[in-house]
Nucleic acid binder design. Structure first.
Length: 530
RNA sequence: GGCGCCGUAGCCAAGUGGCUUAAGGCAACGGAUUGCAAAUCCGUCAUUUCGUCGGUUCAAAUCCGACCGGCGCCUCCA
């Protein structure tokens, strides 16, 4: 099966064919760095990071760019409020953004161009648009003339007249058409400004993406991504500017991810980025809390959705759950669907992952190999070979890998793909049981198990999930606790040998009350902090 | 008003014309295993059923229409 992707431009699923065979250029609209990133801002990066990982696995050489918009009206306002400079605020918020990307395992971005490093590229583009008659200066501003672009509206499927009907347009507008948008904005004293042929000013929103995309990836790129909220006006305008300037198709495939929502009946938490700011939709209330968990969810959702006291992802979510749980959650549904954020949903995801961590512990006991340190093939061309494995075992594993890749080929259906991960988990556990690997077993079977585990790793790497051991399971952090537990379990083992069940059970129950879980196995008792 | 999106089991969610008399996970319930548990495995868990009602078709969760319910966007200055 070959890759097919849903293209917003054509509203259909199309066969994926790149401008240059074997290569993919991808651009994702990044954040305006004026406040800490929240969970909604991570949706786009996680999805497109996964897209890149899959394309790379499929054999493409991928160049992936996310821009940092570090000059914008919102930045100016926010910096003034905080009594700091635009530059300082932008640097601080960019650092926060990067921190969060790192935690989410978003590690495949090749370039993070900053808008302020590319003012000249933008000026050149604006100049060219004026020369071609697509833009005009007006009182120190420069506007794009939408009527000069016959295709204007093709991405969001609307015509200029439709857009204007139903919207209140200010009468005082001196623009040629009320739908014309700014390429360059004159600045007031004290605002960040760059010299231009039209006087000091700063770039309008949209032009930075057109200029940087062309500069770094070329005038025609393969994939342009972003949140659904950016389709209009941002992407429509980018598209118009870029194509009018270059005379070439701007992007072959436009991919838009669904927005995160917070609880039932509430507004979006945010798109992949905060180009629009992220004022919550009206009525963004969270249902009345009925438990501690709900209360936490309500507080967090409130913080995320609220414009005041914006809390970073780190403090709001990662404090309670491993970042990779959040990543898995984001990938558990299709990228074009909206996803409901709640602590309840995150907890459910965490629970569903426990079986994987247990399997990894079992594998480590059997083969002495840590899943998290295991190397696995990174391309389909070098995929894990299952030759020499018991035929039935190999057959079911291959079936799942095929299903996984078919799902990914079908417009990156990560939700469908995850089902295969759970199936493989079951297959591996079954194999461990059948071959009695926990209590010995044949070396050949242990090797076969490891091959199966490597195949699982091959697939989880594509999604960028299950890369980190869950925190604080078992002992290790405290030598005294380890020693005491060893002693206690030794005494309990004696009791069990003597069939002194009351004592054995008393110890186990008492430890449980201390949040220590004891599990017996043929090879002895194990304990973990619950 | 315009342009769109969504509605699948208690919950999350895949599937967009026949290969599916609807994946997978969580929860639940049987069984194997265990001294008893836990974990794991096996089984059960939507059978005119995929928001409702019509229609198209040999065939629809999947296409069309209407309706109900939920939601997004309709530009910088809001």
């Amino acid at each position: 099966m070959a890759l097919r992707v849903y293209n917003t431009l054509t509203r259909t699923k199309e066969d994926f064919q790149t401008v240059i065979p074997g290569q993919v250029s991808m651009y994702l609209c990044g954040p305006t760095v004026y406040k800490p990133a929240h969970i909604g801002h991570m949706v786009g990066p996680v999805i497109f990071d996964t897209v890149k990982k899959y394309l790379a696995y499929s054999g493409y050489v991928v160049k992936f760019v996310i821009n940092i918009t570090d000059v914008d009206d919102k930045l100016i306002v926010k910096a003034a409020e905080k009594g700091t400079t635009v530059k300082a605020l932008a640097e601080q918020m960019t650092a926060d953004y990067f921190d969060n990307l790192k935690l989410m395992g978003v590690d495949s971005i090749d370039h993070f161009p900053y808008a302020t490093d590319h003012i000249n590229d933008m000026l050149e583009m604006i100049q060219k648009l004026i020369e071609k008659g697509h833009a005009y200066p007006l009182n120190g501003d420069v506007y794009f003339a939408v009527e000069t672009d016959d295709d204007y509206g093709k991405l969001s499927n609307r015509s200029i007249s439709q857009m204007l009907a139903g919207t209140r347009v200010e009468a005082n507008d001196t623009k040629r058409n009320p739908a014309d948008f700014a390429l360059w904005k004159s600045s007031k004293p004290g605002e960040p400004a760059w010299d231009s042929p039209w006087g000091p000013g700063r770039p309008g929103w949209h032009i930075e993406c057109s200029a940087m995309s062309a500069k770094i990836l070329g005038e025609s790129i393969d994939i342009h991504g972003g949140g659904l909220d950016l389709m209009f006006p941002h992407h429509e305008n980018e598209l118009a500017q870029s194509e009018c300037c270059s005379g070439k198709p701007f992007a072959r495939y436009w991919l838009h991810n669904g927005l995160m929502q917070s609880g039932k009946g509430t507004g979006k938490v945010g798109g992949a980025h905060s180009k629009h700011g992220d004022a919550p939709a009206s009525g963004a209330t969270v249902g009345s809390p009925s438990s501690a968990e709900d209360t936490a969810a309500a507080q967090i959702a409130g913080k995320l959705a609220g414009s005041a006291g914006a809390e970073s992802v780190k403090t709001a979510v990662f404090a309670h759950h491993a970042p990779e749980v959040v990543r898995f959650f984001l990938l558990s549904t299709h990228y074009r669907s909206p996803i409901d954020f709640s602590m309840e949903n995150i907890s459910a995801t965490e629970k569903s992952l426990e079986g994987f961590y247990r399997l990894f512990e079992t594998v480590e006991r059997i083969a002495g190999v840590s899943y998290f340190g295991l190397a696995a093939p990174t391309t389909q061309a070098t995929a894990t070979s299952l030759e020499g494995l018991p035929p039935e075992f190999a057959a079911v594993l291959v079936e799942q890998r095929t299903k996984f890749l078919d799902a990914m080929d079908d417009d990156f259906s990560t939700g469908g793909a995850t089902a295969c991960l759970f199936e493989i988990r079951r297959i591996l556990n079954s194999f461990i049981n059948d071959k009695k690997l926990e209590i010995g077993g044949a070396e050949a079977d242990k090797a076969a198990l490891l091959t199966g585990v490597r195949l699982l790793k091959e697939l989880t790497n594509i999604l960028g999930v299950l890369k980190t051991a869950p925190a604080k399971k078992g002992g290790t952090s405290d030598g005294l606790a380890d020693g005491l537990m060893a002693l206690i379990l030794d005494i309990r083992a004696d009791a069990r040998t003597n069939k002194n069940w009351p004592v054995a059970d008393k110890i186990r129950n008492a430890l449980k009350a201390l949040n220590i879980v004891v599990e017996d196995s043929p090879t002895g008792a194990r304990w973990t902090r619950g």
